[in-house]
């Protein structure tokens, strides 16, 4: 890996003249789970102001702004006959986010895929060692396979360029086996804390395991179920197959949560009237979990709703190894949650 001081700086160890570079705008058609590109930056929501107005809380505003341009859930999928590619990126932050490995916050998690089955196999994960924010890495491309790269969960990509060998083609990867998109709305766990690498957040695992596109509208520390957020998610441009809601402990308090949960759900229902909704419970947060569970029990009489209870799901596991801080899941928790979601999607979507 080569570390740079400026994004435009010539590379020393890689012969750039052998490659043609694509920036983020020209890679648009190969980007999945990417709601908005604004001034070259991937964002989840175009306009956060209505959400700011609804909360009227400076701390939540800051957390929303931070998370909004962290491309959790975004994947670059493509096919190429280039034997190698160059990944050149400038990140906002030089250090890992607290409570997670560098490979999760700032990692580009690379998979290669079988073109006929769509099955993905992990190849490698790359991230610039601290304290670096601009890097270039040459990556081997497995012949005959497509490539999928999960973007960082907790770092903003300020600039990106993908280099393909001159004369070689860049084309679309095969379509997902399921043609509908699963939307996720959630908190720090949904955003990826604390998976070991960016591809191991549970929404990303669902995408790979179930074979579908996902969009991850997660806002670490700022998931508060605003109606304006529901409106923003409701206007997602993909053909949506299901919605996963992981909204709980970021509420200011239990009272706020209880007052917002149903209206948030009902607003989303206006956009997705018959779609399956999956509610994720709140791990080790009894009041929140109970409210979600009771809400689910009431709603299931008439609506297509499902409930994943992390307390039950994790009951037999080593409680200390399961999460990094009694809240944020390691890969162990991430895969358990993802498996449960995939099970539900297999019969509901």
């Amino acid at each position: 890996m080569e570390f740079l001081t400026e994004f435009g700086q010539p590379l020393k160890t890689i012969n750039e003249s052998d490659y043609s570079f694509y920036d983020i705008e020209s890679l648009k058609e190969y980007l999945f789970g990417c709601p908005v590109i604004s001034n070259g930056i991937i964002k989840k929501i175009e306009d956060l102001q209505p959400i700011f107005d609804e909360n009227n809380d400076a701390l939540t505003d800051k957390l929303l702004v931070d998370s909004n341009d962290q491309p959790s859930g975004v994947r670059l999928r493509f096919l190429t006959d280039s034997s190698h590619i160059i990944i050149k990126a400038k990140l906002k932050r030089k250090y890992a986010h607290g409570k997670m490995l560098l490979y999760c916050s700032s990692g580009f998690d690379v998979y290669y895929g079988d073109c006929s089955t769509g099955k993905l196999t992990h190849q490698t994960v790359i991230a610039p060692n601290e304290p670096n924010d601009i890097f270039a890495e040459k990556l081997y491309i497995v012949p005959g396979k497509f490539t999928e790269i999960h973007f960082p969960n907790y770092n903003c990509i300020m600039e990106l360029a993908i280099g393909i060998e001159n004369g070689e083609q860049l084309s679309a990867a095969p379509a997902y086996s399921h043609n509908k998109t699963v939307l996720f709305y959630g908190n720090s766990m949904t955003q990826g804390a604390s998976a070991s690498r960016s591809g191991n957040s549970f929404p990303n695992i669902v995408s790979r395991q179930f074979g579908c596109n996902i969009v991850n509208y997660s806002f670490s520390g700022a998931c508060r179920g605003e109606l304006s957020m529901a409106d923003a998610i409701g206007k997602d441009e993909n053909e949506v197959g299901a919605v996963v809601i992981d909204y709980s402990r970021n509420a200011i308090n239990l009272d706020e949560f209880k007052s917002r949960y149903e209206p948030f759900y009902l607003r989303l229902r206006e956009y997705y009237p018959r779609h399956p909704f999956i509610f994720i419970g709140a791990y080790k947060a009894y009041g929140y979990n109970l409210h979600i569970k009771n809400f689910y029990e009431e709603r299931r009489k008439n609506d297509a709703v499902y409930f994943v209870d992390p307390d039950k799901l994790f009951a037999e596991l080593d409680q200390v190894a399961l999460s990094i801080d009694n809240v944020h899941y390691t890969d162990i928790g991430m895969f358990k949650i993802a498996d449960e979601i995939c099970k539900i999607l297999s019969y509901s979507m």
Partner: peptide, 21 residues
């Protein structure tokens, strides 16, 4: 599946450590 239990080419992740344990 390997991607469940490995962090990178040769490192075992948290899930892999749990399985080994």
């Amino acid at each position: 599946p390997t991607d469940r239990v490995t962090l990178s080419a040769y490192l075992t992740n948290d899930y892999g450590n749990m399985v080994l344990a």
